[in-house]
C-alpha cells in the first residue's frame, strides 16, 4: 500500500505529519518504509532517531561531446525533446542541466561524437529508525533534475506500507513523487496562502485522477475558508491537528508532532489506523 503525503507549499508541517503517521503506524506494529522524496530539502531523518545502514551515489547519464569531430549537422538538437542542445557556429552546445537522460542524441549522432557519461546528481541513504525503514534522496545543490532520483528512492520501498514524503508544490517532482500512490494526503493550513496553494494541488491531483484526503494543520488558527472549500468540493478532511504552543515548540526543536503532546500521539494512532483501513476502499 502506498500513501503519499503532499502539500501545495512548504512550511505546512508536511514532514512532521509524515513522520508522525509513520511513528503511529510503527507503534501499532505496522511495518513501514518512509520514503523522503523531498530531495531538495530532505529532513525526515532529523525528526527520527535513526541509524544509517547504507549510502550510495545516484548518477544519471548525461551526454558529453567530443567537439573535435562535431560537424554541426544538428541531428542531436533535432531529436532532443527538451531543447538541451543548440547548434551555433557549426558546433553543438549541450546544456546538461536540462537533460532528461533519454539517450537520443548519442544514438543519432552520425559522427559518434556524443558519449553518455555518468554524472552524479545526488545520494540515496537508508536508515533504520526503530522498525521504520527510512529511505532518503538528497539532490546535489544546483542540480535541477529531481524526478529520476525520486523514482529511484521509491523503488527502494521494501515494507508493506510505503509512506512518501513528497516535495512541496505541484511541479514535476511532486507529480513524480505522488504518481502510483493508492492515495494522497494533502497537508494544508487554514490561511489564504494555504488555501491558494492547496487548490493548485487539488487541480493537479484531479488531473492525475488520484484519490486524496486533506489534513488541516494548525486547524484552529486562521480562518474557515479551507473548511468551506473542502465542503463545497466534496473533499474529506480526515484530520484536524490543533494549534498549540507545545506543537510550535516541538517544531523548533525538531520533534515531530507525534511526540509533542500525549493527545497528539493518541490522535495520530487513531487516525493512522483509519487512514490505512480507508486505503482498502481504493485498492
Amino acid at each position: 500500500m502506498i500513501i503519499a503525503v503532499a502539500s501545495g507549499k512548504g512550511g505546512t508541517g508536511k514532514t512532521s505529519v509524515s513522520v508522525s503517521l509513520a511513528k503511529a503506524l510503527a507503534d501499532s506494529n505496522k511495518k513501514i518504509s518512509l520514503l523522503d522524496c523531498d530531495v531538495e530539502e530532505p529532513n525526515a531523518h532529523l525528526l527520527l532517531e535513526c541509524r544509517e545502514i547504507s549510502r550510495s551515489e545516484f548518477n544519471v547519464k548525461i551526454p558529453s561531446l567530443d567537439l573535435s569531430r562535431c560537424t554541426g549537422c544538428g541531428k542531436c538538437a533535432e531529436i532532443c525533446e527538451f531543447n538541451c542542445i543548440a547548434i551555433v557556429k557549426k558546433r553543438a552546445v549541450i546544456f546538461p542541466d536540462l537533460c532528461h537522460s533519454c539517450g537520443g542524441c548519442s544514438l543519432v549522432c552520425p559522427e559518434k561524437c556524443i558519449k553518455e557519461t555518468d554524472s552524479k546528481t545526488g545520494e540515496i541513504l537508508e536508515y533504520n529508525a526503530g522498525i521504520i525503514h527510512l529511505v532518503q534522496g538528497i539532490l546535489d545543490i544546483g542540480k535541477a533534475m529531481a524526478p529520476p532520483l525520486i523514482r529511484e528512492v521509491k523503488k527502494l520501498a521494501r515494507e508493506e506500507i510505503a509512506l512518501i514524503d513528497c516535495p512541496p508544490g505541484t511541479s514535476c517532482p511532486m507529480v513524480t513523487a505522488v504518481g502510483g500512490a493508492d492515495y494522497v494526503i494533502l497537508v494544508t493550513e487554514p490561511t489564504p496562502f494555504g488555501l491558494h496553494d492547496m487548490t493548485l494541488a487539488v487541480e493537479t491531483l484531479r488531473k492525475m485522477k488520484m484519490n486524496f484526503y486533506v489534513i488541516i494543520n494548525r486547524a484552529d488558527s486562521g480562518d474557515d475558508r479551507v473548511e468551506k472549500y473542502c465542503t463545497s468540493e466534496n473533499i474529506e478532511v480526515i484530520m484536524r491537528i490543533k494549534e498549540s504552543i507545545d506543537a510550535a515548540r516541538a517544531y523548533s526543536k525538531g520533534i515531530p508532532l507525534y511526540d509533542a503532546l500525549p493527545e497528539f500521539k493518541q490522535y495520530f494512532i487513531l487516525n493512522s489506523n483509519k487512514i490505512i483501513s480507508r486505503a482498502g476502499e481504493f485498492k
Partner: peptide, 13 residues
C-alpha cells in the same frame, strides 16, 4: 523548457 537556448541559436545563426 529551453526556449531561451533555441532563441539564442536562432539569433546567433
Amino acid at each position: 523548457q529551453g526556449a531561451g537556448i533555441q532563441s539564442a541559436q536562432n539569433v546567433i545563426n
